[in-house]
Nucleic acid binder design. Structure first.
Lengths: 205, 205, 205, 205
DNA sequence: CATGAATGAGCATTCATTCAT
DNA sequence: CATGAATGAATGCTCATTCAT
């Protein structure tokens, strides 16, 4: 994004920015935004404290950028995952399965987005959270399409339901992460998908 | 001092503890656990900073007690709300409606339980969270009963689903709170209840 | 002293004052003047915090009174111990033996006088320390008498030597106390007495 | 900043650590360890409060390092001072004279080592006090040598006597310091040396 | 660009002291 | 006299941020 894109595959610059973000993921995942220190992130990233301020305005900014950029990647993954499906409820099922599969695949990242995002919701309240709105937008689109083609009950309100779906996914992921990743997240994903698909489906479906 | 006097010359001792808890609700709801200062809570409660330490071990303890005690009240309310119903799915509907109605009734309290609890999930991770486990226990019991009497699909796993339900309720409440309480939470509650009841119901129901 | 004396052997009043002093001895002996809290002393004495302020102006005053009153008792003991002896060097020997024997007999008291007195030397600097000056006075008198009767070398300066003797006794007592009271303090007392008597004695003695 | 510039543009880094230690000497000497504040030491050293924590773990650590490092210097001085002498009792005399001469030369340093060390004896109890044990070791070695070559009475116990000597020196130094440095410490040193040398000497010496 | 020493505002917590009962 | 709840000033320590090199 800020790399200017180009022919060079990997600038030595910008590399450092990425290392900081990755370090932040690891640190925030284990300590909480307010408990984590900038010095800790710097150490984890192998850079000097001051270097962080060359790439990010301040600690808050670091969290916001982290969230935005990771969320964007997630959104792209979701779009790719639901694209193959035609029918809205199948898209929804794919959405749910994909979300939890991603958490399973990159637990630390999941932890940051889930736990830490919440930890600073007051912080988040103040910024636009564009990428998160996009995430919700994808859900809305699915629901809208389902209502439009009659596969979802007409009295469903997408704006409310999309939050509920996100909340359910998020909480299940959270309990999996905090609980030591003991149970099988994929099977839970199936359960959730089933519940929401059945719960939203129009009578005749 | 600010009691304005009344029938009782001086509130009983424990009164001060309650005032601190109430102040903590207000402050945590507006600032975040880590951002809020003890001095601020004290000021809000109309007591000296040191007084807080007569009733709570430290700032962490204050949050935990707050959560536990409020959560217990909520649990009692839920129990009362679902008691009149016989059938599990009706109990579930009552549960969902009651949860969000409570948030609507005491928004600040809801905010603390929802937002702030998450903000310090790392903190919470370390304490047993007895009252929260009780909350989940009520949900489990409903689901178990439904599976037992055949009203809920037999392949539903209560341990996964209960987190999903809580997550959905929580997130909807959160978006209502952070979004300025603009939409009608009760109507959303109906939507959620409908989705979960339909989503869980056994075929023939 | 402040009891007003009288026929009654033990007033119920004043008793409390003594209990506070005794508690202070125990607490100061185990924590240090600045580390010990008034509340701790009150608990140890079995009185309310505020009660201490009925008998002592403040925490500093408590330490000073404690020191003064205990030191007075010690001085009386010393006077009695050296009285039977005629010759100054024998009085000196008795002085030294008595001092360390007292420490051995009431270790906690010794600890307060030794360790804690030093801990607040800045505090002590400001008050007259009458009882301690009396203690030194007894030593001076012995030394003066010895010089006068020729048993002590004439070029000895009592004002310097008396501090040295006190310092030696004090340090030996300290090391015994802090070292867990492991060695035989009485035998050390003999050693010290021998050294000082020989070190001060006039040639011909 | 306050260096006034000079030949060197900016003192080497470690300079700051030394300045803090020197400031600590001055502050502890005038206030007592517990009464002195970290902010005061920082101000005296001309650094920010936080800077102290770059060089020392905490306030306790500052005192301990201060004691250890200064004591080491003293030990080296003593070793140099007694080296020229052959006979143990002459070494002892040199030891005593040197100790008090050092106090006279650097009163504030003396005050810290003497007064403040005692003030936190509870603190000191817990750390090994290596340098102080070394100090006592030098004394022991002298006494042992004297007993071995017959110049000191055979029934003298070095472990007891060395504490007595230290205590005597310490107390004399203390009274000189607290008493406003009015009398001639060197002459007192002579007196002490004479007493201990005579007091320890074997009969025939 | 990068560093990391230095800064100093900010905060949780303690505790001597007071005073209404 | 006695109590002990309440006070709030005081302090050790942390950590985001800066800036000279």
């Amino acid at each position: 994004m800020s790399n200017g894109g180009g022919s060079r595959a990997r600038e030595p610059r910008g590399d450092k920015r990425e290392r900081i973000l990755e370090a932040a993921v690891r640190v925030f995942a284990s300590k909480s935004f307010y408990t984590a220190t900038v010095a800790e992130i710097a150490r984890e990233a192998g850079v000097a404290d001051g270097t962080i301020y060359l790439y990010f305005k301040n600690k808050d900014d670091l969290l916001i950028r982290l969230f935005e950029e990771r969320m964007e990647e997630i959104n792209e993954g979701i779009r790719a995952a639901i694209a193959p499906f035609e029918r809205p409820l199948e898209k929804l099922r794919a959405f749910i399965l994909h979300h939890l599969r991603e958490v399973e695949r990159k637990p630390e990242l999941g932890e940051v987005l889930i736990v830490e995002l919440r930890q600073s919701s007051k912080l988040m309240k103040e910024y636009e959270a564009r990428a998160f709105r996009e995430y919700l937008g994808i859900l809305s689109a699915i629901l809208d399409a389902g209502i439009a083609d009659g596969s979802i009950r007409p009295n469903v309100e997408p704006r409310a339901v999309r939050r509920a779906i996100f909340g359910a996914l998020d909480e299940v992921a959270l309990s999996w992460l905090l609980g030591g990743r003991r149970f099988d997240l994929s099977r839970n994903a199936e359960q959730l998908a089933e519940i929401f698909v059945r719960g939203l489906a129009a009578e005749g479906a």
